[in-house]
Simulated assay, not measured.
Amino acid sequence: MNAARRSPDGAFRRLDLTVQRRVSGLLQGESAGLRLGPGSDAEELVPYSPGHDVRRIDWNATARLGDPHVWLTQAEHELETWVLVDRTPSMAFGTALAEKVEVAEATVSAIGIVADGPGNRVGLGILDAGGVRWRPPTTGRRVARRLLTAEPPSPRTAETATVGPTFAAALVELGRRARIPGLRVIVSDLLPADGTWERPFDWEPPLRRLTARHDVIVVEIVDPRELDLPAVGHVTILDPETGRQHEVDTSDPRLRAAYAEAMRSLREHNAEAVRAAGADHLRVSTDDDWARLLIRLLRRRARHPRPARSRAATATH
C-alpha cells in the first residue's frame, strides 16, 4: 500500500476492481428503513383506521378477526451512509503489510464503493490532530477517491504535541450532523489517548446514541506489534498522541507480560463496549486480508439483517 500512496489513481483503480469482484452488490439497491412507511414489504398487521391504505387490507385476517386489518410496510429509501475515519497520529503506525491508516482508508473506501447506488449518498468525516474535517454527502466513489488521495498523517513529535480532539467528541459531532437514519461506519484503532484501559470508555455514550437511531459498524484496526513487546533491551517509546517519551527495558519478562495482558484486556473491553452499544464490530489487523474480512461481515449482515427499531415507538411516526 505504500506504493499506492505514490500513485493514488492506480490505487483507486485496483481497489475498485477488488471491490467489484469480491463485494459488489452487498449494500446496493433500495434500503430498508428504520420506521414503518411507504414500501413494498409487509411488516406489521394492525387494525384499520382512517388514513390507512385500503389496498393493504388483509381480507383473510379481517374475516378471521371480525374487524378490518391492514398491513403496514417498512419504509424503503435511498441509503445515506456516513463514515468517520480516525487519522490521528497513532494510526500512522504499521509493522506488517501496511500502516493502520492505510488499512482503515482502504476498508472505508471499499464500503463507499459498495454503497454507491442510485440515489445513495456517502458523507465523510476525517479525525486528525487538527480536529474533524467534514465533507458533505456525495457519491461513494468520490468519497473513496478522496480518502485514497489524502495526504498520510504524520506522527506527532514531542515538540509539536498538543491536546487534540477526542474520539468521543468526534462521535458526538457525527450524531449531530448525520440525522437521517442510515448506515454509519466508524474506523479507528480505539487506542485510549488518555490512558484509560478499562470500561466505561468516554466514547460509549455517544456510540449508544448513534446506534439508537442508525445502523452502525465499528471497524477496529490493530497492528501485531502493538499486542506484544519484543525483547530488544532498553528503548525509548514515543506516545504518538501526546508526544510523551518513555524509557523501558523490554528485556524484562514481567514488563512484557504485563503489557501483553493490558493490550489483551483493552481489546476485550473494546469489543464488549461496541457490542453493548448495539453496533457491529469488525477487527482488522495490518497483516490481515481486509477485503476477505469485510466480505464476511457484509455477507453476514445480508443474511441476518439487523432488526428494525421498536415498532411501538415507530408505528406512530
Rank of each mutant, 00 (worst) to 15 (best):
D289N: 13
G243H: 03
R292L: 13
R209E: 15
E226A: 00
H246S: 14
L97C: 02
A169M: 10
L17V: 08
E105R: 06
A276N: 11
L238C: 07
P181E: 07
A115N: 12
P230C: 08
A170K: 06
E30L: 15
L297A: 08
D58F: 10
E99M: 09
E204M: 13
D202Q: 07
D194A: 07
L191I: 10
E220R: 02
P118S: 10
A279N: 11
V187D: 05
R87Q: 15
R6G: 01
Q245T: 14
G29C: 04
I295E: 12
G51Y: 11
S109Y: 01
G195A: 10
W59I: 02
A104C: 11
P47K: 09
G195N: 10
I57Y: 11
P206E: 04
E226I: 00
V219K: 05
L266A: 06
N120M: 02
R142L: 08
S49Y: 08
D252A: 12
P206Y: 00
V222F: 05
G164I: 02
R213P: 10
R145N: 01
L190E: 06
A313K: 09
V284Q: 06
T242R: 04
T62G: 01
H317N: 03
P192Q: 13
L191N: 04
A61Y: 01
S31C: 11
G123Y: 05
R256L: 13
R6A: 11
I111D: 05
R299G: 10
T18Q: 14
A231G: 05
T196L: 14
P181I: 04
R283W: 01
V232N: 05
V222T: 15
A96S: 13
L65W: 12
E272Q: 14
L148A: 01
T149I: 02
A158V: 10
H304S: 14
V143Q: 00
S7C: 09
P89V: 07
L65A: 10
S188D: 04
S251D: 15
P240D: 06
H214Y: 00
D116R: 02
A11F: 04
S265Q: 10
P136R: 15
A312M: 04
G130V: 05
L210P: 04
G233T: 01
L207E: 01
P206D: 03
L36E: 09
V83W: 02
R141S: 10
R6F: 13
D189L: 02
